[in-house]
Every structure is written in structure tokens, then in C-alpha cells.
Amino acid sequence: MSTLNLTANIDRPDDFYADLLALHEGRSKEESDAINARLVLILANHIGDRAILKQALDAAAS
């Protein structure tokens, strides 16, 4: 079974984090929540693998 990668995997993590925050700058709470929801769905689609997605859902809830 495929396994969710929970080790560090993002190149230049500070740059990514800055991009993520920049995405939300100046947005209302509703706009930000909607962006986050869309982002989860986009990333989930990219992953595709249901087993991985199940593990990710569990990790997020823990």
C-alpha cells in the first residue's frame, strides 16, 4: 500500500510559506476560507491515490 509522505519534502520551505501567506493577504475571512477549501481540493486531486488521501485526512484530524 502506498504511504503518505510525512517527512520534509518542500524545497525552500520559507519561500513556500511566504507564498501561502501572500495568497491570503488583504482577504476577508470568508475569502480565505474559500481559498483554503479550493486549495485542499486541488492538492487532493493532484494526489489522486485514495489510500494516501485517507491517511492525510487522518493525519489532519489527529
Partner: peptide, 9 residues
């Protein structure tokens, strides 16, 4: 706390 991937952030 649980996942190493988040620590570099």
C-alpha cells in the same frame, strides 16, 4: 509535534 515534515516550516 507529530510530523517531521512541518518542522522546517
Amino acid at each position: 509535534e507529530r510530523y517531521e515534515f512541518a518542522r522546517p516550516l
